[in-house]
Write a protein that binds this DNA or RNA. Structure first.
Length: 117
DNA sequence: AATGTGACATACC
DNA sequence: TGGTATGCCACAT
């Protein structure tokens, strides 16, 4: 009985996962997309971040980066350095718009949330 | 209402 | 080995 609330089903799931990212951890668009069951919908995740500021809840979009660990969306924040500042504020080292030890800080929802795959 | 776009990722050549 | 092309779904204009 979807009562219209599921129109943003994908987005809400994305926001939910992003909100579940622990402090000081990061993830990738592809990881989220794969966790949602649509590994090829990674763009939607990025798009979701784009409209995250329109979402009623706060979404730590700064904890989501591309597969290369590059702060692809830094330019979309208030200032081009806001994203880096937020990450550094969480103890994540960022150099040249790239996350150092990206793999170490990587938080895979499909693994951490123990998906049944 | 329809078209284009988008903070990616993967596959193929 | 890198570059090109495509897929995906919802939002914005």
């Amino acid at each position: 009985m979807r009562k219209g609330s599921d129109k943003t089903d994908f987005f809400e799931q994305v926001f939910s996962v992003v909100c579940l990212i622990p402090f000081g951890r990061i993830t990738t668009y592809g990881a989220i997309a794969r966790y949602l069951g649509s590994p090829q919908s990674s763009r939607l995740v990025g798009w979701a971040m784009n409209v995250s500021h329109t979402y009623k809840e706060f979404v730590p979009a700064h904890r989501v980066v591309n597969r290369n660990g590059l702060l692809s969306g830094k330019h979309h924040f208030d200032t081009p350095i806001t994203m880096q500042q937020l990450l550094e504020n969480e103890g994540i080292e960022v150099e040249d718009d790239r996350i150092i030890n990206f793999r170490k800080h990587f938080w895979d929802p499909g693994v951490e949330l123990d998906r049944d795959f």
